[in-house]
Simulated assay, not measured.
Amino acid sequence: MPQPAALDTLPIIDIAPFLNSDLGNAHNRSATAAALHSACIGYGFFYLDLRAFVDPAEPEELTRLAREFFALSQEDKDKISLKNQDHARGYARLKENVTNGKADNHEGIDFYKPVEHPDKTKPVWGENQWPTIPLFREKYEEWIEKMKKLGLIVMEAMSFGLGMTREEWQQLRSQVDDSFWVMRIIGYPPLPNDHDGYSCGAHRDYGCLTFLYADPTPSALQVFVKRPGVPNEDTSGLPAEQGLEEGIWINADPIPGCVVCNIGEMWETWTDGLYRSTLHRVVHRGSNYRVSIPFFFEPNFDALVEPLETISRMKEKGVAIPGASRKSVVYGDFLVGKVGNNFAAEGKGRY
């Protein structure tokens, strides 16, 4: 039987070379871009070292504020319930979110990019609901601005790795420069032994880039790494979620100074399948209350997402790209098609 390769941790990539325009930094930029390209093909997941971009105290303060909210009474948390708005923006109770037909053992608050002329009867078109905890909104809005900036930085670095021209990058940038971003603040109590499900069931993100900051809790976030010829030996004791795919689940434990980054389905379309969105889940069996803060950097709502010209050049050079060709999509239509029917009733899954 084939033995697993020594690929049990995700790569760590330092984004520092792309934080300034120093022309003498070209070699480091090229190395970073190549590392991103390799990680997107091999894993769809990687760590981003942000020590040159973010003070580690900032996300720690966000975690503290999140814990303060989740420690409130149920009555107080329900004051910003999803049902007050578009069933997208606001607070979801423990087990209110559903993945793969099973209740997820977490609670959370969801925020989306503010829109003009909000209308809570339309999917994702309501208004964000903020806790009244002092400094909560101010600190999180500062984080949102930094993550939006980080999204453009990482996208540019990926354009280098894909061999895009500067004109092609500017065209791609115009599709994400008004990102219809999403941010979640999630609280995970320990997973009960008798719970018929996961802390968060296995799923693939359907957008562009996810930047996940999580508290130091180990052995919670898991990523499925495909390894042909290696049968999965899932020891979670929970139902298998990867179907017949061969591979293993690995832990993506927090690393100080880093966020976990993964690509969503829009990158599958842009690269016509060269980059693939990867299954991941949360199984939190520890004794603590875990907090994570994923930020989803997405295309513009009206962005037309279609295979990039650089992919055509790769194919002409003989680069093998698996699977059928991807169809163009308007991101907003894709988003509403994915989740729109989940906003009509309370207690439906959204991720």
Rank of each mutant, 00 (worst) to 15 (best):
I293R: 07
P231I: 00
I13P: 03
E68R: 09
E96D: 10
G257P: 09
I311L: 03
G187W: 15
A6E: 14
T63F: 15
E96Q: 11
P256Q: 10
K315L: 06
G237Q: 02
H195M: 03
E58S: 03
G201H: 15
G126M: 04
V225T: 06
E107L: 07
G151C: 09
L72T: 07
P123A: 09
M183E: 10
Y331E: 03
A88C: 11
I12K: 12
P322Y: 07
I153W: 15
I250V: 10
R173W: 12
S287P: 01
N262A: 02
A240V: 08
I109H: 02
H284V: 02
G286E: 12
L50K: 12
A6F: 15
A345R: 11
A71C: 05
L72R: 11
D177A: 01
F69V: 02
F45D: 00
G286L: 09
A88P: 00
N341E: 15
G286C: 03
I109E: 05
E268R: 09
N251V: 00
E96S: 06
Y206F: 11
N128F: 05
D253I: 01
F53Y: 15
E316H: 05
H280I: 07
C40R: 12
L23G: 01
L172I: 04
L72Y: 14
G126V: 07
W267L: 10
I15Y: 09
L308Q: 10
T210S: 13
S287T: 12
F295W: 08
D194E: 13
A26D: 11
S312M: 10
S159Y: 11
T271L: 10
G163Y: 14
R67A: 04
I255T: 04
W270F: 12
K95W: 11
F296M: 00
N20W: 14
E168C: 03
D55W: 07
I41V: 14
T99N: 08
P299Y: 11
F46R: 02
S81N: 15
A103W: 13
K348F: 11
R51G: 05
N128W: 08
N97M: 10
P294Y: 03
E58H: 15
T271H: 09
Q74K: 08
D196Q: 10
M147V: 02
S38K: 14
E233R: 08
V124E: 03
A31M: 14
Q171D: 13
V115P: 00
E245W: 12
M183S: 06
A26C: 08
K102A: 10
K95Y: 13
F224V: 01
E268S: 05
R173H: 14
D177F: 04
Q171E: 15
P218Y: 03
R326E: 13
I41H: 04
F343C: 05
T278M: 09
G44I: 11
K146P: 03
I144Y: 09
N100A: 10
E167D: 13
L94S: 02
G197R: 05
T310N: 11
E75Q: 07
D22T: 05
H87I: 09
